[in-house]
Amino acid sequence: MKNELEKLDVYLKELGEIHPDAVGKVGQEVDDAVWVVGRDRVLDVLIWLKDKGFDLLLDIAGVDGLHLGRMERFEVVYILYSIKENIRLRVKVFLPESDLKLPTATDLWQSANWAEREVFDMFGVTFEGHPNLKRILCHHEFEGHALRKDYPMMGGQWCSSTRDLREDLDE
């Protein structure tokens, strides 16, 4: 644990030399280090981290902070892992409700494809440049975004059509 933090401090310093001020706040949440990054710098930071050995993108998570009373309502969290160094890192981006857009990370990690589709489906965040940005969990007729805090808990939507599996295979 101590080695991880020291290693991350080294990374942070090295990153600061190439992309100064890219990482805003540095913290620790539960058991992982968190770097808060601005939206326009996130792709630079992710590219740099991948070169540094963060070869796995474990997941991309969305968070709706509707009732937290902060400036930006949404946050998107990239959970990265370096096999070589055995380090986990969360890169966090805050997004205002009025402009939910992020550049896609599918060019860096293949696993970003479905993870970004899930965040799009559940929170309505658009990932620009994504090859196939459509709903992954909810039915394609579903309207709204189910994990937003203002979506009603029992708001089931009756959907009637079935999709041919071949359509999905072609994509």
Binding site: F142, G156, C159, T162
Partner: peptide
Amino acid sequence: NYKIGPVLKR
């Protein structure tokens, strides 16, 4: 669930 519902009906 609501997604598999139409499949079951069909």
